[in-house]
Design a protein around this nucleic acid. Structure first.
Lengths: 227, 227
DNA sequence: AATTAAATAGACCAAAAGGACAAGAATGAT
DNA sequence: ATCATTCTTGTCCTTTTGGTCTATTTAATT
């Protein structure tokens, strides 16, 4: 998938690779620090946007001095790239799949469950992604143009097969995919609004089940796969 | 509805009010300039986020010197407030309504059409709103807590009535509203992604009809109002 | 025409922020 | 113990930016 190589590739990181290859002992400090930075950065980028995010604030939230953050990532843009790459990997793992052999009912059930679970368990990744797309998808244009477009084409073909075989109602597969994406991601991207409207402080485990059940039920009926 | 009074209320604007009251002649320059600023600001805030937006850039895109922009709005935050207020007014006008006397089928048809039309005709307002909610709804908390929550409660009650009368399938009205919101707004907020995936440069008029038809058809079936 | 208010605009300032640098501390290998 | 890498961190510099101030021009009012 999309590669946004961001790591500061210098003698240092080359040596890291070597040390990992030679004695299988990755430098713990490096890994831990980078992780702390990325966690802090994700929050900061969501709350403040790319331009609004400050390296100082990321450093503070990571519990490191700013200069140390800039030692691991040579500049702010690279931190952002790293956060985006993390996000895309998550998206990639969490998207589930739509397999012809599953048939429409099971495939849609699995897909919705995967997306809802991802939305509730990793709302931050969803938000980063959403903000990037809304703002014009500068860094994700390639991802959308190649990977995503291809994915939608393939899966649409699968849906079309089922439709042609009379296994589900004749609806536009592309728009169906959009509807599933949007309705599932809504609970992540707009969690603030959803919670405020429901007058609740946080999601609970039961919510995942409830929403999954609602969406599965509704969408299956919309596809003519129920009653 | 929510009031975010933003206008620089000084002797000047008071005089404006007076002049309007006395001879019904609003100062054209003022109105036109403010409008140019708000249009430019909307673009800038979407593209750069609140913090990332610069008054200079807004001024450039509005064709005015920066000092002139700050003459009409006393600071950046006020510009943002004004843009948000505009956005909420648009939301308010465009949301359509769900009337008990329409019955579920017609009501949902009207509602979807209103939302889709708004999404296609005013994607920018939708984006500003979406980003604000994603980032924590700082400025819209009140709006959500009062106006929006109330709206969802009322409309849920209407749906529940129809359900109790056996006029539609028994589904959770709140989640139904969320689904309609998300699936319609998707075409505005994620227009970049949608267009990229469809390998198109821009939306066309036919798209509004097509999407409206798809969503109406699908959602009505999901509500048990078709076949 | 004279006077008052509104609008335009250049210059300026202080604060914030990205990032470079260098010097020292910790760690690991031989 | 020595040496080389990697890590840590304080300091400094430059650019950007929000916002002020003041002066001048344009428009409206009487």
């Amino acid at each position: 998938m999309c590669q946004l190589n961001y790591a500061t590739v210098t003698k240092k990181s080359l040596s890291v690779k070597n040390s990992m290859k030679n004695n299988n002992k990755p430098q713990k400090i490096r890994v831990v620090s980078i992780d702390k930075i990325l966690v802090a950065a994700q929050d900061e980028f969501i709350l403040q946007g790319y331009k609004g995010a400050t390296v100082q604030s990321i450093a503070d939230n990571a519990g490191l001095p700013k200069a140390n953050v800039l030692y691991y990532f040579k500049n702010k843009e690279n931190i952002y790239h790293a956060v985006l790459e993390q996000t895309l990997n998550m998206w990639d793992q969490g998207i589930g799949d739509i397999l012809p052999e599953d048939g429409p009912k099971l495939a849609i059930e699995k897909f919705i469950r995967a997306k809802v679970t991802m939305s509730f368990n990793n709302p931050k990744a969803s938000k980063i992604y959403a903000m990037e797309i809304i703002q014009g998808a500068q860094y994700l244009k390639d991802f959308a143009r190649t990977y995503l477009r291809q994915w939608v084409r393939e899966k649409s073909k699968v849906f079309q097969c089922w439709i042609d075989n009379g296994e589900m109602t004749n609806i536009d597969p592309v728009n169906l995919i959009f509807l599933i994406w949007s309705s599932t991601q809504h609970y992540a991207d707009f969690d603030n609004q959803v919670l405020t409207i429901m007058n609740r402080a946080d999601y609970e485990d039961a919510d995942i089940e409830h929403v999954t059940h609602f969406l599965t039920d509704f969408i299956l009926r919309g596809c003519g796969l129920k009653q």
